[in-house]
Design a protein around this nucleic acid. Structure first.
Length: 375
RNA sequence: GGCGACGUGGCCGAAUGGUUAGGCAUGGGCCUGCAAAGCCCCGUAACCGGGUUCGAUUCCCGGCGUCGCCUCCA
């Protein structure tokens, strides 16, 4: 039986989905190259998916592409290109990075720009159910109607307001009834794309595409929702509130978040610029070395990027390729046990290291971690 | 620069319009051959200036200073 940490429940709990696992992970906003933090997140989910498939499940995982959003518009403006041209280029780079790192293909990778009509319908549903109001040309979600708001992050109202303030949540917006109310739809700036709706022209709010896409692609209730831990608040909190408002059903059974990768003592982030890009690394190292360097860390704990990892994992990969003795499935089961214990990849790797040292052929065990030894 | 949080005895850290937690360290004592540990004892502090008040650390205004955030991004 697999056990995984659930952010909302704040503990490691059994994860026992049906034969078909419905999964959604928040993807990227394609305005810049993929960095190691992105890679770590998506590789973590990839390991989970590989193990679920290994257990006999069919996995339907959706990973969206946010090609309608502020940072994309800003970058397109700066470069003087159309935002969708920028998005298409960066999405292609991202896809190439994921393929190189042997992240399994998704069931679906829908774009926000493909979902405008779904979003329109979704917002209509939220308004009809009485969870949203129109004010000043925007549509806001009314958090006072959602008593469970905050139950993923476990933040108090005061903490959420403080964080919203720091994270550009515009809590002073005079059109809002409550400082934590968030935008479902809002007017576009002059040079931004705009779509007509019954409540005015504009564009979607930040959180709404994921709700609309999850509903369109997977239905009202999904088994597991993932993303980086930086998305817990406000993104996932808002996403859940509006989804449950629209459908009246439980949105997500299990919330899973991947820890941040840091560098120079700070979270690797676009705003700070302390990034290590995957496409650059790929020109210097075997992508399997990059993958190993990521999964030698546990998904739930933040870690510091360290260039030492290359030498270590070049050696590791070489050692893994030397064994010839049949291991009778013993090693494979040890790796399975480690993964079933809250995706303990460091322990899985330690098992493989040990077996490889004794001359065991570790091909199958490595494959479960997405490392293909025979090329 | 903007937004926000905060400036309490050597340090950390609460509460509070008056009688002024607590913890740690220091110092003194008990104990011990010595030391350590343990135990006991000891502290009137509120960044500056002004205002409200019978009375302010607490409320209000101004200044100074510290911290966080300012493309929440995976």
């Amino acid at each position: 039986m697999m056990r995984l940490y659930d952010t909302a429940k704040q503990s490691v709990v059994p994860f026992e989905p049906g034969p078909t696992v419905l999964m959604y992970t928040c993807g990227i906003t394609p305005y810049d190259a993929t960095h190691l933090g992105h890679a770590f997140t998506f590789i973590s989910y990839d390991i989970l998916i590989r193990r679920l498939i290994d257990m006999g499940h069919q996995v339907k995982c959706v990973r969206n592409v946010t090609d309608v959003d502020d940072p994309l518009f800003a970058k397109a403006r700066e470069l003087g290109v159309h935002y969708l041209d920028l998005a298409a280029g960066e999405e292609a780079r991202f896809t190439a990075d994921m393929e190189a790192l042997e992240v399994l293909p998704m069931y679906s990778t829908p774009r926000a720009s493909s979902a405008i009509s779904d979003i329109r319908g979704f917002i209509g549903l939220v308004i009809d159910k009485g969870f949203a109001y129109q004010s000043g040309g925007s549509v806001y979600f009314d958090v006072t109607k959602s008593p469970t708001f905050g139950e993923i992050s476990h933040y108090s109202n005061e903490t959420m307001i403080a964080l919203a303030r720091e994270r550009g949540g515009n809590i002073e917006d005079p059109h809002k009834r409550h400082p934590l109310d968030f935008v479902l739809w809002h007017p576009s700036a002059a040079d931004e794309p705009s779509w007509d709706t019954m409540w005015g022209a504009g564009r979607p709010g930040w959180h709404i595409e994921c709700s609309a896409l999850a509903l369109r692609e997977l239905g009202t209730t999904i088994d597991l929702h993932g993303g980086g831990s930086d998305l817990i608040f406000p993104h996932h909190e808002c996403e859940r509130a509006q989804s449950e408002a629209a459908t009246g059903e439980v949105f997500v059974k299990h919330w899973m978040h991947v820890a941040m990768v840091s560098m120079d003592g700070h979270k690797m982030s676009k705003s700070r610029g302390n990034l290590v890009f995957v496409d650059k690394l790929r020109t210097q190292f075997d992508p399997r070395v990059i993958r190993l360097g990521l999964i030698e860390h546990h998904y739930r704990f933040e870690w510091e990027w360290d260039a030492q990892m290359f030498a270590r994992n070049v050696d590791r990969l070489a050692n893994w390729g030397t064994g010839t003795k049949n291991d009778d499935g013993q090693l494979l089961n040890q790796v399975r046990d480690a993964l079933d214990d809250d995706l303990d990849t460091p322990r899985a790797i330690a098992h493989i290291d040990k077996a490889a040292k004794t001359g065991v052929n570790v091909t199958d065990a490595a494959r479960l971690l997405g490392i293909e030894l025979k090329r």
